[in-house]
């Protein structure tokens, strides 16, 4: 099927998004009778919902462009190493906030730490990309960076164990959670996500050309190193925004663009917005499930996206394989 119609896909996505929003804000009739408490709860839930939707949208959009730049539908934003960089930055920020007591507000310093960590990781990555045009080298550098940052993050977590409160915060952050996202975090991330989405949309056409391979894209006029540089940069900004809102949320950037291609086509521009909406829906839904499961502690969001995402991803892979067999490809 060569032709795809985007209308129904948009329709379904928007309806599901609306349902998830209603579900996320729903306060049962018997739950709270006090008007003031009810308002406070609603505002908390609205912030949490906004954080989930924004983080999901950012990760899914970053997934679209990273998969384009690596010409691999199985790549995810985390292959750049910037997710691990942002997570480490956030953890360092939490530790600093802990060390200085309440002198600095974690709600401010954590997003800054994430952005700084992501940009630092990106800087290291791009200094390697400058000396090599090899895609595999880029991939390996990202992988090594991620490993180093995760090891450092593990070390920080072990340090944070000394203090019970701090240890909890650092671990919750690395497991992924939008429960503690505040209004200021949302307001910090919002422009990053909006600019990131617009920038990724602008790079969509050269990414489409890159689908044919580097040499063909170059012959058609694409400045391949420049495209890689900017796409990696904007993907990192999106990742930093997502991590600052919800810590380490797994699987979204990988699975969402992959799941949407059969419905909206492979063109990056047509894939970007539906992916962003679907990413928001996916994370908000996972957060809703995580919240709704009766348990003494909440299931971490990053765990939930992985638990829901992995089987979904497997199903997609099997379907793709079956279609290949049926079509004789």
């Amino acid at each position: 099927m060569g032709e795809v119609s985007k209308g129904p896909t948009y329709g379904v996505l928007l309806v599901v998004l609306a349902l998830v929003c209603v579900g996320g804000l729903w306060v049962g009739p018997g739950d709270l009778n006090d008007e003031g408490l009810r308002d406070a709860l609603l505002s908390l839930r609205a912030t949490r919902l906004a954080a989930a939707v924004l983080a999901g949208a950012a990760l899914a959009a970053a997934g679209v462009v990273v998969q384009g730049v690596f010409r691999n539908p199985l790549a995810s934003p985390s292959v750049l190493g910037t997710t691990a960089g942002a997570t480490l930055g956030g953890q360092v920020a939490l530790l600093l906030a802990g060390a200085f007591g309440l002198a600095v507000d974690p709600e401010l310093i954590v997003p800054l730490g994430c952005l700084f960590g992501a940009l630092l990781a990106l800087g290291v990555l791009l200094s390697f990309v400058k000396v090599t045009r090899d895609l595999l080298a880029l991939l390996l550098t990202g992988f090594i960076l991620a490993t180093v940052f995760m090891s450092l993050g593990g070390f920080l977590t072990s340090l944070a164990q000394e203090s019970w409160e701090l240890g909890r915060a650092v671990i919750a952050f690395s497991l992924g959670s939008v429960a503690s996202a505040g209004t200021r975090q949302v307001l910090f991330a919002l422009p990053l996500v909006v600019f990131g989405l617009v920038a990724c949309w602008c790079w969509g056409t050269p990414l489409d050309l890159l689908l044919s391979g580097e040499e063909e894209a170059e012959s058609l006029g694409v400045d391949v190193p420049r495209v890689r540089w900017w796409v990696a940069t904007w993907a990192s900004v999106l990742v930093a925004a997502a991590v600052s809102l919800g810590g380490n949320i797994a699987f979204v950037g990988l699975i969402v663009p992959h799941a949407l291609r059969p419905f909206v086509g492979v063109g990056h521009r047509s894939l970007l917005l539906p992916s962003a909406i679907a990413g928001g829906v996916f994370v908000a839904l996972c957060d809703l499930i995580a919240r709704a499961i009766p348990s003494t502690t909440e299931v971490p969001l990053g765990v939930m996206t992985g638990l829901v995402g992995a089987p979904l991803f497997l199903a997609l892979l099997l379907r793709a394989r079956r279609e290949e067999v049926v079509s004789g490809g």
């Binding site: 056409t205 044919s212 391979g213 063909e216 006029g221 694409v222 492979v266």
Partner: peptide
């Protein structure tokens, strides 16, 4: 690219872009 058009032996394109989209890539430059 505006001065030289190059047609490779075989395209590396394995993605389901529409034919008109592929041809439009020739105007990118």
């Amino acid at each position: 690219a505006r001065r030289i058009a190059f047609v490779p032996q075989r395209s590396g394109l394995r993605s389901a872009l529409r034919v008109e989209e592929v041809v439009a890539q020739g105007r990118y430059a």
